[in-house]
Write a protein that binds this DNA or RNA. Structure first.
Length: 222
DNA sequence: ACCCAGCAGGACATAGCAGC
DNA sequence: GCTGCTATGTCCTGCTGGGT
């Protein structure tokens, strides 16, 4: 039986929800919110609509709990419903729409996934890290629709090929290819940015410059 | 040490589309 | 209608890590 990081087994939570235990619903939502939001957002490219899609997915799931027979697969089942909900919305809007550029506040806990995000200490480093993250998120946003959803599920959410394929209703081989090509596209996009940024590496102005100057002047005075 | 499942990545096939 | 290009899907092979 699978015990998620949060403690209780998914099967126990599913049973509790079937009994109408409000606390179980909340535990399940808090456990899966981030993953479902990322999946929905990767498909819709719109944070507000992704949030609505996740809420609708939960409602749909919670009113059809009897359809989830195996509690150990509750997470996958929810992910599939969220992906379907997002895809449905995408079809409804006709896949033609302009999106706001970039991402705003990152969802809770994402920093823990990538230690680099927290390694910065000085304002310059914090700015550089924020800029790097913005570039990565922009590059992911710029991926073709199908590639982006697969990349987020596989690389960001660490879902298996089978899970991802089931969620999106595509063959596992297609998941592999899309992930491979999404990585290639991201590498290319990021290397283009790097080409522009490398000349500015090891920036020297500011605190360090002042420190060296002050140190030399002090020793000259001695 | 061996076996096996899952995965990455390359090669090839196919579909869709624009330009002529 | 034909051709060439691009995007996408499928198949295959080799690698890796976990289990026995």
């Amino acid at each position: 039986m699978r015990i998620a990081a949060g403690g209780e087994a998914e099967a126990d939570l599913l049973d509790a929800m079937k009994r109408g235990d409000g606390r179980a619903f909340e535990t399940v939502m808090r456990r899966h919110n981030r993953r479902l939001f990322r999946i929905a957002r990767s498909i819709l490219k719109d944070e507000g609509e992704a949030e609505e899609a996740v809420q609708d997915a939960y409602l749909r799931a919670f009113t059809h709990l009897d359809q989830c027979a195996d509690g150990d697969r509750l997470g996958g089942w929810l992910a599939r419903i969220a992906a379907n909900e997002a895809l449905m919305r995408l079809r409804k809007r006709g896949r033609v729409r302009l999106f706001a550029d970039g991402l705003e506040a990152e969802e809770e806990g994402a920093a823990a996934v990538v230690p680099l995000w927290t390694a910065a200490s000085t304002p310059e480093e914090l700015f550089a890290v924020a800029e790097l993250r913005r570039l990565v998120e922009q590059a992911i946003d710029d991926l073709p629709d199908g590639f982006r959803a697969v990349f987020v599920m596989r690389a960001v959410e660490q879902m298996s090929v089978q899970e991802t394929a089931a969620c999106l209703g595509i063959p596992p081989e297609t998941v592999k290819t899309r992930l491979h090509r999404a990585r290639a596209l991201l590498q290319k996009a990021l290397s283009d940015h790097l080409d522009r940024l490398v000349p500015t590496a090891f920036g020297f102005a500011g605190e360090r410059c002042d420190r060296i100057v002050a140190g030399v002047l002090a020793r000259l005075r001695d």
